[in-house]
Amino acid sequence: MNVIEINNLTKTYGKSRGITDISFNVEEGEIFGFIGPNGAGKSTTIRTLLSLIYPTSGSAKIFGKDCIAFAPEIKKQIGYLPSEVFYYDNMKVIDLLKYSASFYKKDCTKRIKELAEIMDLDLTKKIDDLSLGNKKKVGIVQGLLHEPKLIILDEPTSGLDPLMQQKFFELLEIEHQKGVTVLFSSHILSEVQRLCSRVAIIKEGKIVTVEKISTLQENNYKKFKIHTKANLDKSYFDVAGVSKLEVEGNNVSFLFKGNLNIVLKKIAETEIANVWIEEPDLEEIFMHYYVKEA
């Protein structure tokens, strides 16, 4: 079942920003990454899903219902964490969270305490006095306290220290195990790579590709680094599928895409001291998409 279905969603502003003809689905129970650089249209897409802004054309469905027409109903099951959090400054954290909880017709007191403890958040402080990172924690608790079935995160980690990021990711993993669906927008690829099973790449308001993370990596090259015992002929590894070949004394490095056996045979036939074979990280794949299209 699809929790989010986006069909040809277009939003044009007076200026050049906006999104064009966006379509993708997010399946129930998956953590779906939504990546692209700043200004590519991630927030615009998300804000449309939340009916904060209205589409110029196209539509989107959440839980099978139109996200504009059924907005209030749908939002009962959505937790949203924006990239920058702003709350009523003169309120205490606990009062804000209680106010937030009052919109959902259930008792969230226990959950608030639980989340605050995990995120190490002082509930008695005034929002005004909180640091950026602590405000973000309030945002996290606020977004999760009603136990939503869909969590929408728009660049959620900005302002969080690595320790808190870690805790936050653990929280998401737990929710994920409960069957919660997550839409995770980010420009930081490592975090997407770590959490998400599938990913949509957006560029200048258009979806470039929607892929499984594993497929993205499979279809790509591998990085080879070899330390040989004797000096090699420079052209030794220059076979089909090899690119960016660099030979410096005993060190050889290159990228390879194709039948791995060919390269491994080549390696086996030489005296080597050490060998490293690495998966490219998402960053490199991502750059690949961007450079190719540019």
Partner: peptide, 16 residues
């Protein structure tokens, strides 16, 4: 004060 995002992502209509 940028709190519109907070309020408008709650399950309420704008009319309410």
């Amino acid at each position: 004060e940028k709190t519109a995002d907070f309020l408008l992502t709650k399950p309420v209509t704008r009319t309410t």
